[in-house]
Design a protein around this nucleic acid. Sequence first.
DNA 1: GATGAATGAGTCTTCATTCAT
DNA 2: CATGAATGAAGACTCATTCAT
Lengths: 201, 201, 201, 201
Amino acid sequence: MERRLTPRGLERKRQLLDFAARRFAESGFHPTSVAEIVQGMGVGKGVFYWYFDSKEELLLEILQAAQLDLRRAQQAAIEDEPDPLVRIERGIRASLHWLDANRHLDTLIQFARTDEAFAPAIRRGGRVAVTDIARHVQEAIDTGRIPPADPEVLAHCILGVTDSLARVQLIHRGQPPDEVADTAVSFCFEGLTRAGSLSAR
Amino acid sequence: MERRLTPRGLERKRQLLDFAARRFAESGFHPTSVAEIVQGMGVGKGVFYWYFDSKEELLLEILQAAQLDLRRAQQAAIEDEPDPLVRIERGIRASLHWLDANRHLDTLIQFARTDEAFAPAIRRGGRVAVTDIARHVQEAIDTGRIPPADPEVLAHCILGVTDSLARVQLIHRGQPPDEVADTAVSFCFEGLTRAGSLSAR
Amino acid sequence: MERRLTPRGLERKRQLLDFAARRFAESGFHPTSVAEIVQGMGVGKGVFYWYFDSKEELLLEILQAAQLDLRRAQQAAIEDEPDPLVRIERGIRASLHWLDANRHLDTLIQFARTDEAFAPAIRRGGRVAVTDIARHVQEAIDTGRIPPADPEVLAHCILGVTDSLARVQLIHRGQPPDEVADTAVSFCFEGLTRAGSLSAR
Amino acid sequence: MERRLTPRGLERKRQLLDFAARRFAESGFHPTSVAEIVQGMGVGKGVFYWYFDSKEELLLEILQAAQLDLRRAQQAAIEDEPDPLVRIERGIRASLHWLDANRHLDTLIQFARTDEAFAPAIRRGGRVAVTDIARHVQEAIDTGRIPPADPEVLAHCILGVTDSLARVQLIHRGQPPDEVADTAVSFCFEGLTRAGSLSAR
DNA sequence: GATGAATGAGTCTTCATTCAT
DNA sequence: CATGAATGAAGACTCATTCAT
């Protein structure tokens, strides 16, 4: 595509991206038709194809933006915190806040993982996320805060706990993200540190 | 539907179920057409609709069978083990073995979670799984092996770790299920027990 | 086809004919599938094709039997009545009784008239019916009971009145066939005789 | 549906309506496939579904338009004629002219009456037609031109005669509509008035 | 005679995409 | 930029008919 867009055009595109993301999450990517999207936005079909090459490309952009946004939220939360363990905690916390505010995007990412047309894009983003966390874990290992282990594996464990709790506690039980984060952090750290629980801090 | 099937019919149906599950996992449920399935099996289109009311119903049956099968594997692994912690460990181990042998079904379950047409069926099975684990956790709490906490939440953490590692270590890195289980069990238990790692047992 | 049937076979065939006729009338010929018919009768598909060459042939047989049955009812009602006007009246009356007892067949005949695959069969039977009536009309004209006119045209008028009233008074308003017949006869005769109404008899 | 159509769109829709009506009348509603219709018109299949929700809806629209058109023709023929008997006669005459020019629609209406999916729509229109005629009959009764009787029943008789003659004299024998109308009017009036025949006028 | 299973052409309908206006 | 109209391949599903058992 690569179209130079006016500010108004950019706004339109963002609306399209957002509207479509919600529809996709609600009814599924395949079952949601382009017609439904443009109709729901009250525009003609031409608009859609002005901004996107295809429906597939649209989802790819949604996914990319979502992953970028999550990563930004995490980095903003960590900033220049020196303690790697606190960085990990803040990352978990930021993730849960983001997932709370962007449930539909979580559904979309989950779906994308199962479709070979989109999974590669997700894996790319996933690897970045894992590397991010693994870096903090490695630092914690290096400074003796966590016993030696494969940092990437630990990162996956952390992600597993976070995502699982997000899906259940956050989305289906409506718990506040900070409480869920407490649980996640506690479960992860007890495992990582093998010692005093976070709740004792 | 409710058709009384001859042994030959039952066999056909099982073939259909299995073949379709693999196709769905590979190319996605929506992108895989009924035509593709029957063609791949070398039968006429009518055969499909002789055994299933619809494509949707087929996936539902696949999902149901998968969940039932996994649960059976877990229960067989646990049997009458008296120690609740060992039961949890064996459950994790059995899950990873099953996931190793049924990767395609895992993908399918993941997909189903994102589609409101199938999510309810998954949630039902998911709840059963959680309750199963939570029972053991509760027993461990009662006997002081695990500090008090909401057993269902802990169950979700365990599932999160297991599934996450399964996806990465098992499926994408091809590690043997028992090794992955070691990691999962270790990560979970260190958190649950706050004490000496499993590997030390 | 031409199959020599045992008494039991004949009975089966009659049941099939009757059951199908009712289904066809209720849901339409095309929308009713052979599967529905055999299922409704609790027999296998083979049975159907044992007795009929095709679904189309089945309807043809139903139609033929219906027309034959109606004609027999009319002739039985007329027998050897000498007065042609009374013969006409009795024919109308018999028709309405038959239509009352065989509403579904009326619907089927009506449908058949609109489908070029069956219309010829209907037209054949229709012509017979018209000729029947026209003969009585001709005799009435010959004996000066009815002013000269094309007897076939008059026959069509009589049929039109009878069928129209049957559909409305009989089927949709549930009036007793003899009352409807009174109305039909009265309307027809007043026109035919231009004189003293039947109701005066 | 409810689509705002451009003039060009309206024209297309009318073409589709007309073309389909003829095909349906010729080969039957069910046996005529959407594919046949669009192929016959030389357009893509999508065009059909751009203008109609379904094949069924299309027939419904055809039926509605036909009934409306017939009624308009009748009302135009009657205008402000003061004599109720003449109004009835003109109605019959107009009907026969319309039926002559729209034989295919007559077939369609006849078919629709036999299919529970369309019968309700027909009945609605039928009731209007009957009420129309009944009004004139009532007036004729009130002014003593016709002996007392249920006006709606008489209306049905008139319709029966008209339709029956239309089908035979008009369609199968190709008589000119005015001649057929003479016959119909004569038959009906002799019955209604019990007096001097129209042909004597 | 009868059944359940199978066939596969054919049905209606949808939908991503394109294009004239 | 935008729209309504059009395309036509492809999809899910049906069904009359056949046939091995």
